[in-house]
Design a protein around this nucleic acid. Structure first.
Lengths: 165, 165
DNA sequence: AATAATGTGTTATATTATAACATACTACTT
DNA sequence: AAGTAGTATGTTATAATATAACACATTATT
């Protein structure tokens, strides 16, 4: 089992999260022989500013603050597409938003804990889930390729009332 | 385990699917003491015309053919919202589309087999999946309320080449 | 019939995403 | 170093999905 849940739900040195993510990204891009351009890196960095997913237009607004020129949606979406293909970012379909992947290039389950109060998203990978789902797919003769598992609820902080509710 | 996969993937008397779904809907609405109005029923029926999810604007187009007056998006979305709340319909987030639920008022897993070729969607409920996911949530102190599990791949017909690819 | 509750119509607009084509940048070749 | 192919971004317009706000209509209840 692989997860960033503990980290996400506890106070932590978030700068380290960001830096680790960026370091991994540089390495992965180098290995894949693709370019982590300024725009792409800026977007990845923004997505790592918190553990809350951002939409494309939120990213655009944030970028406008950082950069001098405004960046149009197609460029945002292209960068996101690039990051997703490399496994550095996930799309959360029900939120129309994007979040940094805490363990790219590991085996995935694409399980997301989505807090309906604070919108924080933690990710989990668990072999047993993958195995079980594969079994179900095999039984139905469904050739399973990808998956997204969204779990909605309350994170520990919001459940306990530590966050404003 | 509960699924409509076999049915969906095999030739079957689809009129029976539709009628069964409408009968269940009438019963459920009667029990809940809410109204299955003409518009709501028409939309539910359209969603049951096939095992492929339809978007709100597709529903609008189809309705235009059946009914005399055009129906505006808000009405469509309201009807969908109603049907979802009653458990008669599911939203497939990654498709922005809606599909009839084959077993409303049964225990759910909200697992969907989504064929990327023919777009057909089958649904599965499986206790083991729910149990396992609950375990993961408990471990992380995440209070789990709802879920959506989307499995992307190829249905048996498309995998075998029976459908045009 | 009066009223409250529920459902729908209507207009406008917000939000998310992509198509199509032009330009710019990068890396490689010679 | 200039030419070129490949990659990335800029730009404009628009498609696709979804909702807000308010008016009107229908249904159920008294």
């Amino acid at each position: 089992m692989l997860t960033n849940a503990r980290l996400v739900y506890q106070p932590h040195d978030h700068v380290r999260c960001i830096n680790a993510a960026l370091d991994r990204a540089h390495e992965i891009c180098a290995n894949a022989n693709v370019r982590l351009t300024a725009t792409r890196e800026a977007i990845l960095k923004l997505l790592w500013q918190s553990h809350q997913p951002l939409g494309a237009y939120q990213l655009q607004q944030q970028l406008a603050k950082v950069s001098d020129k405004p960046i149009a949606p197609p460029t945002i979406y292209r960068a996101i597409e690039f990051l997703i293909e490399l496994g550095l970012v996930h799309r959360i379909p029900s939120l129309n938003a994007f979040v940094g992947c805490p363990f790219p290039s590991s085996e995935h389950s694409n399980i997301f804990f989505i807090c309906e109060n604070c919108k924080t998203v933690a990710e989990i990978a668990d072999n047993r889930v993958n195995t079980l789902l594969n079994t179900l797919c095999d039984k139905a003769n469904f050739k399973h390729m990808l998956q997204t598992i969204e779990l909605f609820g309350l994170c520990p902080n919001c459940e306990s009332g530590d966050n404003d509710e």
